[in-house]
């Protein structure tokens, strides 16, 4: 049985406790933060209101009518 809060993967459990955290890569967090900053810039520019405005109108040419 693994420790509570840890993996049930045998390879990870066989590692020393201090090395387990090293399996967690930083790249996903960096990517998420970068896109979060991008989204915040968009919010600062007022893009959500533009997206909302577009999404509440039926674009007939977009759906092949007209």
């Amino acid at each position: 049985m693994g420790q509570p809060g840890f993996s049930t993967n045998d390879n990870e459990l066989n590692q020393p406790v201090k090395n387990r955290g090293k399996n967690i890569k930083m790249a996903p967090f960096i990517v998420i933060i970068l896109f979060l900053i991008l989204a915040m810039i968009g919010i600062g520019l007022g893009e959500p209101s533009q997206a909302l405005n577009q999404a509440t109108q039926i674009c007939l040419s977009c759906i092949g009518i007209g």
Binding site: L36, L38, E47
Partner: peptide
Amino acid sequence: FMGFYVIGTMGI
């Protein structure tokens, strides 16, 4: 409006 909000959301 450059699409930052939409691209940012998709990227997250």
